[in-house]
């Protein structure tokens, strides 16, 4: 592994720990060693990516920016592999790991736009927003949008379903609302009525919001 890659990887581990509200030096050290087989923390300190104060590890400004970037790319890559290429969860972890280090800023932004500026990775962790997300919120509508953005009479293809509740996901899937299925929207108020093949389903807005689709017509 190259040095920059190693540093990026280590910073992303610290980011992950910070999400879990863990800042302890030894804990972080162990985690880094477990994944990289090497103790990089001292190096990070030396290069000015982190500070350590009373065993509490903190990012410097520079370190935080890199960590945020790499985490974002890693999680975007995961989304891309599961939602668009439809790989299984188990299969994505290692390719995604390689992927993030070679993504340019440009490619990263176009993936993000393609996916509709997703907010979470397939494991349910937050994807830090990038510049494109902020811009998108303001003006452009992305290709992948929540079902709530589809007007009555339009047809769209399901890209992914973002629901945390397993029983609901299960119910949607058994009704045929699976990634790749085409849905036509019949009405949007007071409840959504959509059709997937020969099945008509009524949903409330909160559920429609979690179904991400690509507009077809």
């Amino acid at each position: 592994m190259e040095k920059t890659q190693k540093i990026e990887e280590a910073l992303s581990i610290i980011w992950e720990e910070r999400e879990k509200k863990l800042y302890n030096k030894t804990g972080i050290k162990d985690k880094i060693f477990e994944r990289l087989n090497e103790d990089v923390l001292e190096e990070l300190l030396k290069d000015g990516y982190v500070t350590i104060d009373k065993d509490i590890v903190k990012f410097t400004k520079e370190g935080e920016a890199i960590a945020k970037d790499i985490t974002r790319r890693q999680r975007l890559a995961e989304r891309l592999l599961t939602d668009v290429l439809e790989l299984d969860r188990g299969a994505i972890d290692s390719p995604a790991c390689e992927f993030e280090h070679i993504l340019s800023k440009e490619v990263e932004e176009s993936i993000c736009t393609l996916l509709g500026h997703p907010k979470e990775c397939p494991h349910g962790l937050a994807i830090p927003p990038g510049g494109c997300c902020v811009k998108a919120r303001a003006q452009i509508e992305s290709i992948v949008v929540p079902l709530t953005k589809i007007l009555p009479g339009e047809v769209a293809k399901i890209v992914y379903v973002l629901t945390r509740e397993h029983p609901q996901l299960h119910k949607l899937m058994s009704l045929g609302l699976v990634p790749g299925a085409n849905v036509s929207v019949h009405q949007t108020s007071p409840s959504f009525v959509i059709q997937v093949e020969e099945t008509q389903v009524a949903l409330e807005k909160d559920i429609a919001k979690e179904i991400y689709v690509k507009r077809l017509k």
Binding site: L175, Q200, V201, A202
Partner: peptide
């Protein structure tokens, strides 16, 4: 409360 998902028969 569970959100509303209902199949509508023809």
């Amino acid at each position: 409360r569970t959100p509303f998902i209902q199949e509508i028969p023809p």
